[in-house]
Design a protein around this nucleic acid. Structure first.
Lengths: 338, 338
DNA sequence: GTGAAAGCGCTAACAC
DNA sequence: GTGTTAGCGCTTTCAC
């Protein structure tokens, strides 16, 4: 087995207390002792066991990020943002994917319950509001990217309703009036908000909201083609489509091309998230940018300052970060063709 | 604070030993006691503290996966494969990204040294062979996807040389004779092997290996355009390009289109990895598939059986999993144009 | 400036 | 079938 603090103490002829002091750079240890301790550590290749330390200190300085799926590069960008903030400030970030399965999610949440980590950031969850409210009394939990209706715990998201509104307004400004919506089903809070924003933008411009131009599936690639076909089968098919994820938009673009349409010219397609792939695609994909590093930074910053606080004084606020509509090749002004 | 095993014992009027027995489903506990313990657990909302448990058991049942970057969806697919195998067998998988920075990697490796995790899987590393060999004596470490020259520790990869050979053979079979190579610099072991395979395929078909058709950058997107331009500036530019990553291939495709070329017809481009994006792209991207779930499963399976074994009996073998060349729209037979 | 010792929460020998 | 207790490796009072 590897060396313990006791071994180090024996090696340098000092007590474990002194070794511990050196380990934690605490004051009141002579230069000479420090040197002897460090030599012994070096000699034995000693590395402190954090299970012992954390058990004693009742903290681990580790935060777990649980994401619904590891397939979305979007989530990993958030994690990168979280890490960039937390790492230099003494917290390690680890992440796990629940595959959108509540069973796996619960299992991973166990790391929080059993004190393997100090806090958890959920980028989407299958917990309901009631459970989250209860858990967040005892544990440090935050939501990011995807809120939960009625949940009163730290949440950091973009203003989905406004973001969708802004995106659809842009399509309208470009002359489109038959605009389709490719979204997720009603359980997805963010998709619902985006649908509301879509509807608000239409109404505000005096455009009729038509049910055959609204598709509800989920955020995944597969639904892009399904939704596209459904929308295009409408009596008066859309000239532009707003999708609640870039993956949906990319799939829709693919499907449009397969059907012989020129994306941009014949049909405009807009996504949401601004994943890296948007700029890699041909055509490049218009989208609503979610500021991943900002989202990550804010949520972990607030979570970190919650850790250790009594339940009553924890920040369980709802925060939004600014979004940005980005027009690329997949969206062009509407031209009335003969 | 949350309840401890002692609280549970007090609550149900039994000893901590009995509670512990119930917690660990060990034999020798009466039905009645078990019931009382479970009731107390329920009542107190008790969840065992794993710091205590792990400290005592000297194991955590957690494996850490360190990847060079979280931007590559490829890595996340490996992680998914690892998780799919490990999770049901009692191991939790967590992952972290080193941003290809040795400083961050070391910091994350600390979780191994300080016993927060039982083992580590490195999907690429900045450690040298010597260090890895030394560390793997004391700790459970495995390499996946990217080997290290001279490292004698558990490694699971595809046969990069053969995979590249097979891919380039396929291009040759389709009539191409001026074939470019878009690769990484010499420190990347996998890229080196792929370059060797590329050269072997050319030589075997009596095709001259030309230095102006070989580009060395790295695996990232940015180098795709740079490399493409470099190769196309050759006196006799290639009619097909083999890239060591799909990201490179996608960037090259993008660049080709920007330069007015029809990918497939005017120039064939092949990638490596088979990331999800390959099928999303327009045109779809030909590639060499790395069987991510198989890679992940094999490496974690072997690592798991290493854990707890004395250094001498650990499996430090070098294993390969089968690859597969996939031809999609980005590669077409060479047609001599006038 | 240093050491002795208690104790973080848990498991597992051992005794009964 | 159950309880007592030592101790996993560490930090931190409290003496000195």
């Amino acid at each position: 087995m590897s060396a313990t603090i006791k071994d180090v103490a024996n090696e340098c002829g000092l007590s474990v207390a002194t070794v511990s002091r050196v380990l934690n750079n605490s004051a009141n240890v002579s230069e000479d002792s420090a040197r002897r301790v460090n030599e012994a550590i070096e000699k034995l290749g000693y590395s402190p066991n954090f299970l012992g330390r954390n058990l004693r200190k009742r903290e681990t300085n580790v935060i777990l990020v649980i994401m619904p799926t590891s397939e979305h590069s979007f989530y990993m960008k958030i994690v990168a943002g979280i890490q960039a903030y937390a790492q230099p400030r003494g917290y390690d970030i680890i992440c796990a994917s629940s595959n959108s399965t509540s069973e796996i999610e619960v299992r991973q949440m166990n790391m929080l319950f059993n004190r393997t980590v100090d806090g958890v950031i959920l980028l989407g969850t299958s917990y309901d509001a009631e459970t989250l409210n209860r858990l967040s009394k005892t544990y440090d939990i935050a939501l990011c990217c995807e809120g939960v209706d009625g949940a009163e715990l730290l949440t950091v998201v973009v203003d989905d309703e406004q973001a969708a509104y802004d995106a659809v307004r842009e399509l309208i400004r470009l002359g489109h009036r038959r605009i389709g919506f490719l979204g997720a089903n009603d359980r997805a809070v963010s998709s619902n908000f985006r649908r509301k924003g879509y509807i608000r933008a239409l109404k505000e411009s005096g455009i009729e909201v038509r049910n055959d131009l609204i598709y509800k599936g989920n955020f995944e690639y597969e639904h892009g083609a399904l939704g596209f076909d459904k929308l295009m089968s409408a009596a008066e098919p859309p000239t532009a489509i707003f999708c609640v994820s870039d993956l949906l938009a990319i799939a829709a673009i693919h499907r449009a091309v397969d059907r012989g349409l020129r994306v941009g010219d014949d049909i405009s397609i807009m996504g949401f998230d601004n994943i890296t792939m948007c700029e890699m695609m041909l055509p490049t994909v218009s989208t609503v940018e979610q500021p991943c590093s900002k989202l990550g930074e804010m949520v972990v910053r607030k979570l970190m300052s919650n850790i250790g606080l009594p339940a009553a004084s924890k920040d369980n606020g709802f925060y939004t970060v600014p979004h940005r509509v980005i027009i690329r090749e997949s969206v062009k002004p509407y031209k009335n063709r003969t």
